[in-house]
Amino acid sequence: MDCYSFSNLLTDYLDNQLKLPVRREAEAHLRECPVCRRKVEEMSALVDTLHNLPKVSASDSFDAILTDKIRHYQENLQHPRNLWAFFSTHSRTFSAAAALILVMAGTLIIWRGYNPRLESLSPVMNSAPVLSSMGSANTTPSPQQNTVPSNGYIPSSMALKDSSDKKNLDNGDSLGPKDFRNQIQLVNDRR
């Protein structure tokens, strides 16, 4: 056995973990090598010192303080004294819930942003209020929306919502005959 091999076995040698044949080899090396002998002596002194370090034990007040901590915990569980104590006791639960909500919200935003099916649905969804404000035959209009004041004033809620709708109206492409009749009726009523 050489010095390098012995230094790899030093811990096992000191802790009596070597099998008998290897231990004999190590001891044979130690008899011949003063450098490794010195290493063993120094390390052995250190390990002995660590083993014999005084044991630090719990103080007399240890149990009383522990009992107080347990009582405090139980009180907090039953009647959270303040919001902060409640949050700090359940901080993990709240953090997990907040993270879950964030993830769900993020997923929903991304999904709505990139899902073509939803995009194709969205104009229909967005146009629903416009249709109702125009008094579409298929919807039940609210009295306010359906009423055209006698002075001819058209409330803003009845106005077209955006420029694309305005454009469609100008072209007259998307307006059916019924819608057109409604518009004429509206103008006549104003007169």
């Binding site: 370090l53 044991k55 630090v56 034990s57 719990a58 240890f62």
Partner: peptide, 10 residues
């Protein structure tokens, strides 16, 4: 308690 106090103290 004593074992753990000694362990954590070190």
């Amino acid at each position: 308690k004593d074992r753990l106090v000694n362990f954590v103290f070190r």
